[in-house]
């Protein structure tokens, strides 16, 4: 189910502005890859180009190629809607649909796919909530609004919503930045569990988090404000954190800038 991602010579633009220049990297299947780097270095932009959410922003476009197990996500005949069904996403701020119940939030993706059968929906909702470690907390109030949950629970609800459609890749854009330490820990544990079934790419500002959850780390940086972000180096997390090949990576990880 999980698939590997090959990014080759990726340039990402906002209109005429080149935001990220020449990124080439591979994300292995069933692993966690962390994208780190200072603000504005383009790591979120790269993440959003992996499920073609980048082009939702006005003027957003990319050059180069991104392949999912060899399938070009930016092929002319590739429907971005289809890409997003294969590559799920969890956002920085928990964003459950406010008018929907917990159950309906998780079922939303399936319903978009035309699943109407109640037994199927019930099963997937339970499986997904269990997969997101939320089931025991909400099983007695599935019909209550999702917006009534705590921030950490809402974020796990969003993860449950994302995995309910069984994507091949799960993208997470600073999923813990709006959460308290306990909820953060819950999400991190969840990420470790989820990588058995999914390919996960996570953007984080938290070095410890990258060190804790990821197998591979990619460090992005930009030469100066207004210059495009670049991928400085990518490698096994243990190597990047203990013995980085580039001085800037070491400086950033040790907190000397960014």
């Amino acid at each position: 189910m999980a698939k590997r991602i090959d990014v080759e010579h990726l340039d990402v633009y906002y209109g005429d502005f080149l935001a990220v220049h020449d990124v080439t990297m591979t994300v292995p299947a069933r692993s966690v890859t962390a994208l780190i780097g200072p603000s504005g270095c383009g790591k979120s932009t790269v993440l959003r180009s992996l499920n073609r959410m980048h082009e939702v922003t006005r003027g957003g476009r990319v050059e180069g190629s991104i392949r999912l197990d060899g399938v070009d996500l930016y092929a002319p005949d590739m429907d971005p809607v289809l890409v997003r069904r294969m590559v799920g996403m969890v956002f920085q701020r928990p964003n459950p649909f406010p008018t929907m119940s917990i159950y309906d939030n998780v079922a939303a993706g399936l319903r978009l796919n035309g699943v109407k059968d109640k037994a199927t929906l019930d099963g997937v909702v339970e499986q997904s909530l269990k997969g997101a470690n939320l089931w025991t907390e909400v099983k007695d109030r599935l019909r209550k609004p999702g917006a009534g949950l705590s921030g950490g629970q809402q974020q796990r609800l969003c993860i449950a919503r994302a995995i309910a459609v069984q994507p091949q890749v799960l993208l997470m854009d600073e999923p813990c930045s709006a959460l308290d330490p306990i909820s953060t820990l819950a999400i991190e544990d969840l990420i470790t569990e989820l990588k058995a079934a999914y390919t996960i790419v996570i953007v984080t500002h938290n070095m410890q988090q990258a060190a804790r959850v990821s197998d591979q780390t990619a460090f992005f940086n930009l030469a100066a404000t207004g210059k495009p972000g670049e991928l400085i180096e990518v490698g096994p997390t243990s190597t990047i954190f203990s013995n980085p090949g580039v001085k800037a990576t070491e400086d950033y990880i040790e907190g000397r800038f960014g």
């Binding site: 809607v81 069904r85 956002f91 964003n95 993706g109 978009l112 994302a162």
Partner: peptide, 12 residues
């Protein structure tokens, strides 16, 4: 965030 939540699920 609501719009993107829907789009990221593969909504048209």
């Amino acid at each position: 965030s609501h719009r993107e939540a829907a789009l990221a699920l593969g909504a048209t």
